[in-house]
Design a binder for these strands. Structure first.
Lengths: 166, 166
DNA sequence: TTCCTATTCAAGAATAATTCCAAGATAAGA
DNA sequence: TCTTATCTTGGAATTATTCTTGAATAGGAA
């Protein structure tokens, strides 16, 4: 089968599995099935939803494995999470129009303002989804502090997500 | 004191309290202190952080009150939460450059693409925060489905956040 | 001011997402 | 096949958030 004949989800699955393998991570039955599920979804599922879907094919699947696999895939750059990756809901009292810089490592968020970004025009397709109350840019990156930290201590893969409270 | 002489945080506090009052919501000691704390912060705190800060001035303050007050303020449009307002972390396997439409009511997320948005230029100030791996637009609004729902049933204020699983 | 009462609060129990732990399985190289 | 480092599981542990219930109080009325 030539690449051009593969469906979108087939391509995705091939990409997922090849990157996992190349990273030297064992491609277990469980992980393969999770990848399969991820490859076909056009949604933004949570772990529980994936768990339930995969469980139909692998009845012994555990929720913990789903979580561990998802964080591992994230660490390999194969998926992202929506919003700042956090333990708790965070509140924003800044009522002025502004945008966010989110550190993908520690979850800290910095505000910034930009007339140019405020003026951005949205495609018409968006209006079909529903009403629009706000549009803001979310920039993701590694903040200066975490970058320094990462250069000194290399964390292992799939190390979970929680930043323990101190 | 003229308005122009008020500090940013004084203005914020005045705005918070006046909107609360006008909404016919009792401005209790606890709520006032939470507003005070919110007015001074330039961060994006979680409920626990606010709780600890306010507790120094009001030792009997309960965490539940902080949560209830925050949701109430959100319902009045005085603050927002970061990211899609959710119970669980959600994952995004779409590796193509894309943007999100997030429903503020049900938390559903739709992807959309836009060459114009992909090309947006970030202000230099952002680069000082750290490295940049991605920039995406997050449009918030009320999705068609929730809009319809809202027109038929009006929910009370401060009704919490959780969408119970069905 | 004093009283009334709907609203609000505190404390702890309940719920639910996510992670940890210990012991048994298994992928993949030799 | 054999070996072993890595993985998975089920259940227990954590932790963010909400619920419940009886006590407290803001703000209007007398």
């Amino acid at each position: 089968m030539r690449n051009s004949e593969m469906t979108r989800s087939q391509k995705r699955l091939a990409h997922l599995t090849s990157v996992v393998r190349e990273a030297g991570v064992k491609l277990t039955h469980q992980r393969l099935e999770i990848c399969r599920e991820l490859a076909t979804t056009e949604e933004h599922p949570d772990a529980e939803t994936l768990f339930r879907a995969v469980q139909e094919r692998v009845p012994t699947m555990s929720l913990d494995t789903v979580y561990r696999t998802l964080w591992m895939l994230r660490d390999l750059g194969l998926l992202t999470t929506l919003g700042p990756n956090r333990d708790a809901v965070r509140f924003d009292v800044n009522l002025d129009r502004h945008h966010h810089y989110v550190c993908v490592a520690c979850g800290s968020v910095r505000d910034f303002e930009s007339e140019e970004l405020n003026a951005l025009r949205l495609p018409n397709a968006v209006k079909k989804f529903g009403t629009i109350v706000d549009a803001q840019v979310e920039v993701r990156g590694l903040c200066a502090h975490c970058k320094r930290e990462k250069e000194t201590t290399a964390a292992p893969l799939g190390g979970g997500r929680r930043r323990r409270r101190t």
